[in-house]
Computed example of a mutant assay.
Amino acid sequence: MICDHFDAGRCRSCSWLGTPYDAQLVAKQRQVEDLLRGHRVAWDAPVASPQLGFRNKAKMVVHGTVAEPTLGILNPAGAGIDLRDCPLHTAGIRTALPVLAAFVTRAALTPYDVPSRSGELKHLLVTESPDGELMVRFVLRSQEPVARIRKHLPWLQAELPEVVVASVNLQPEHKAVLEGEREIPLSRQETLTMRLTGLALHLRPQSFFQTNTPMAAELYRLGREWVAAVSPRSVWDLYSGVGGFALAIAGTGADVTGIEISREAVASATLSSMEMGSMEMGSMEMGSMEMGPTETGAAGQGAVRFEAGDATAYAVGSTAPPDLVVVNPPRRGIGPELAGWLESSGVGHVLYSSCNAQTLAKDLDAMPSLRAVRGRLLDMFPNTAHYEVLTLLERA
């Protein structure tokens, strides 16, 4: 892959860009196998990602001036480096960013300056759905520019009709935090629909979604396939996010409970589940299988419910375990308390999706009764040292 920003030394975020892609996959597979060597995992071939145009979310630092804003990153001196043509982003995002830069000028949004702690607009967050629709979020220091954004929003939507969700996020603190807690909707539509692998997942502004759409689709497809092979009747999806694993696995006939700390994500997942439950049987396809209602528990389709709460507290406080547990934790892993509960719970299978094989290995060491019988690396983050690993654990 050729990137002028990388070659010129302006951006080194893709730290492995100088390594041939086949060699990247080999190195990642070798690393995860070394970390999990003591668990004798049967590895499937790694899943390769496109190197270009795969990133469905742009997290752009806004700098410069109202007349000449930069959208990208900051250099070590705190000056803006414009990356609106970054080849990692989807085509729709690359088309949108110059228009958004013009909108900054039109709405007189003063870029935030880190050294002087002045200005208003800190970040532009843009997400593109597989359908080509866009969610645009303006991260501001205060509400002062909101009226101007509302005034000029019709211009933006005329120039970019793909923008179906727009909002303001308030992040008043001077620290390295991408966004704040408060979100101000600007558009009538408040969710972006991510359609992949037969699922229609609603994404609210503060909900997390995998940034690599092709790899996310494959992750949910594999999860469903592996769970179907062991035929559980009941499943918990801990760290369920916007419901990707839960809604995919419901197609196997299992009853699924999703637990997620983010109420925004729970609202997204519940809306997706309700919409899928209103569809006719067979109206959606998941690979070679069909998906019908998710809430009604029609033939061949499990019931799904989502609940806001802490994953570990939910498991530890339960009276009876399910047949299978899905865990998809942040980089820190599931931790000793949840690992200890899983070890002693009697759960027959665990599907563990990890973005950090080091914490995965630590968690597996804490669950010796659950052996990893299958694993696959998905290159969720090409051109970097990061990846996603899916493992299926079975009680010995």
Results as ranks from 00 to 15, higher is better:
350 V>M: 04
67 A>K: 15
317 G>Q: 06
300 G>N: 11
193 T>G: 00
24 Q>I: 13
373 V>M: 03
241 G>Y: 12
313 A>R: 15
116 S>C: 02
137 R>W: 00
393 L>S: 07
325 V>Q: 03
69 P>C: 12
41 V>A: 03
5 H>D: 09
15 S>F: 06
354 S>M: 11
226 W>R: 11
16 W>T: 05
53 G>A: 14
30 R>Q: 13
171 Q>I: 03
173 E>L: 13
219 L>E: 02
268 S>I: 12
299 A>T: 13
337 E>C: 07
132 G>K: 14
42 A>F: 04
327 V>G: 01
340 G>F: 12
365 D>G: 06
64 G>E: 07
352 Y>S: 05
213 T>A: 14
166 A>T: 12
155 W>D: 08
364 L>E: 03
211 T>S: 13
108 A>H: 14
317 G>W: 08
4 D>N: 11
254 A>P: 04
395 R>H: 10
332 R>Y: 07
177 V>A: 10
254 A>Q: 08
99 V>D: 00
164 V>Q: 09
283 S>Q: 13
368 P>Y: 14
390 L>M: 15
218 E>I: 14
237 D>Q: 11
48 A>F: 11
13 S>Y: 11
344 S>I: 04
225 E>Y: 05
268 S>T: 10
301 Q>H: 15
44 D>Q: 13
360 L>E: 00
181 E>T: 13
238 L>G: 02
305 R>N: 03
151 K>V: 07
124 L>G: 03
167 S>W: 01
259 I>M: 05
93 I>V: 09
140 L>D: 01
346 G>D: 04
209 F>T: 05
304 V>S: 09
230 V>W: 02
212 N>D: 06
16 W>V: 07
253 G>W: 06
231 S>I: 06
153 L>S: 09
43 W>Y: 04
263 R>W: 05
239 Y>H: 14
331 R>D: 06
369 S>H: 12
